[in-house]
């Protein structure tokens, strides 16, 4: 019969075996929590254009998505262009020029986006920021 002292020691050893794993998992968890940014999924797939611009993204309340086939969405809700401008109109009656972010697919026709810009300008949104990604490998 082994003394109880030794039995307790061996059980501690099994815990010790997983402790480094748990440490690493905790570190990974904290890394992903702090470094990543949670974002809602887009209603359709968007591959934003590459750009060498250095502009820092700002947080504006509204985001317009433009898919490769010209479909549009406002804040995750798919809407046709007319409804989208209608939806934005009441918010712009405050007087000040509003800011808006546009996330457009790189393959969409530029005239679609320019058309959207014109409509937003009429609706009183003077500042439109296009979201881009730095070119691959320039990280």
């Amino acid at each position: 019969m082994r003394p109880p002292f030794q039995r307790r020691r061996s059980r501690l050893d099994t815990d010790d075996g997983v402790l480094p794993l748990i440490n690493v998992v905790f570190l990974l968890l904290i890394f992903f929590m702090l470094a990543g940014r949670l974002s809602s999924a887009d209603p359709f797939e968007i591959a934003p254009p590459d750009s060498v611009s250095e502009g820092e993204p700002s947080e504006t309340p509204s985001l317009i998505l433009v898919a490769a086939d010209g479909r549009m969405a406002l804040d995750g809700e798919e809407l046709p262009l007319e409804r989208l401008v209608e939806r934005l109109a009441p918010a712009t009656e405050g007087g000040e020029a509003r800011e808006l972010r546009v996330k457009a697919d790189g393959r969409v026709e530029a005239s679609v986006v320019v058309d959207l810009l014109g409509r937003l300008d009429q609706a009183g949104i003077g500042k439109v920021m296009l979201l881009t990604l730095p070119p691959a490998g320039a990280g």
Partner: peptide, 17 residues
């Protein structure tokens, strides 16, 4: 957190119509 977080490095261009 691995699946839900994104690490995309967003940049911006101002567009003026």
């Amino acid at each position: 957190f691995m699946l839900a977080s994104s690490f995309l490095d967003w940049r911006m261009i101002e567009l003026r119509a």
